[in-house]
């Protein structure tokens, strides 16, 4: 199987600080890759240098698009990059306020992605929006309500619907369960798991919650101080941690 995303020796520094140091990994279609590590370990910088237009110092990011074209993400024109982020890619942020337009209705939030790709039929847009609201288990009656009237979990699911409407292949998630309580987290994770499987999505999932990666991620990268210290199958890494830091991380997890 050909890989979807290929990151080679990606390095990004902020002055003297190496936020990402020689990061190399591959992502295959339908795979969920978890990235864990403490705050400041470079997880979000890594995500942004792949998914957003953050300038990197060196390294390569290769993405194979829907038409099977091999794209060097750091060399394609900005217009093409922005188009990718609006069609084949999706971003789910920790804070829904960053991923949603709070001053327009839930329906409009989903509609925007379709409008961006040139759909100009109101009725069809409504239908699509309703369909994806159902998929993320939001009552379609709430379509014309503002996102700020939604609960945290619903806002997160709305973000997901907004991203999924253009049928993306690769989704970046930055702590998607961050501000949610445990039962809502569990529901969101459950939903994510079935969506990922049914839609054959590839996901890069940044989190510091080992429970989340245990449930969702097929493979796991452990980052510390900008470098990958350990990688492998999730269960292997978590059950048999090799690196000192991973051992610490696993043993620090609260078990009720």
């Amino acid at each position: 199987m050909k890989s979807l995303l290929n990151v080679t020796k990606l390095t990004k520094t902020y002055g003297n600080i190496k936020a990402c140091n020689n990061i190399t990994f591959e992502l295959y279609p339908g795979q969920v890759l978890g990235i864990v590590g403490e705050s400041g370990s470079g997880k979000s910088t890594l995500l942004n240098s792949i998914g957003n237009n953050l300038l990197i110092d060196s390294g390569e990011v290769i993405y194979v698009n829907q038409k099977n074209q091999v794209l060097n993400i750091k060399q394609i024109p900005e217009s093409q990059h922005r188009k990718l982020t609006k069609t084949e890619w999706g971003f789910v942020r920790q804070n829904p306020r960053d991923g949603l337009r709070m001053n327009v209705t839930a329906g409009a939030n989903i509609a925007e992605r379709l409008l961006d790709v040139g759909v100009r039929h109101y009725g069809n847009i409504r239908q699509e929006a309703a369909y994806w609201l159902e998929q993320v288990e939001i009552d379609t009656n709430r379509m014309d309500d503002f996102p700020h009237t939604f609960s945290g979990g619903m806002q997160q699911r709305l973000q997901l619907a907004r991203v999924l409407v253009t049928k993306p292949r690769l989704i970046f998630m930055d702590e998607p369960t961050g501000g949610l309580d445990v039962s809502v987290q569990a529901r969101l994770l459950d939903l994510l798991r079935s969506l990922v499987r049914n839609l054959n999505l590839s996901v890069i999932l940044v989190t510091h919650d080992l429970g989340v990666v245990r449930l969702l991620a097929h493979r796991l990268l452990v980052m510390k101080n900008g470098s990958i210290v350990e990688s492998g199958l999730t269960d292997r890494v978590l059950d048999d941690p090799q690196h000192f830091y991973t051992q610490q991380l696993v043993s620090a997890t609260l078990v009720p």
Partner: peptide
Amino acid sequence: AKMHALEEYGSMYVKLYEDITN
């Protein structure tokens, strides 16, 4: 300015969408 340069006008329709919805 970037949106003009790249002809990204989809979000402008969000306002029209909201009008029809309301």
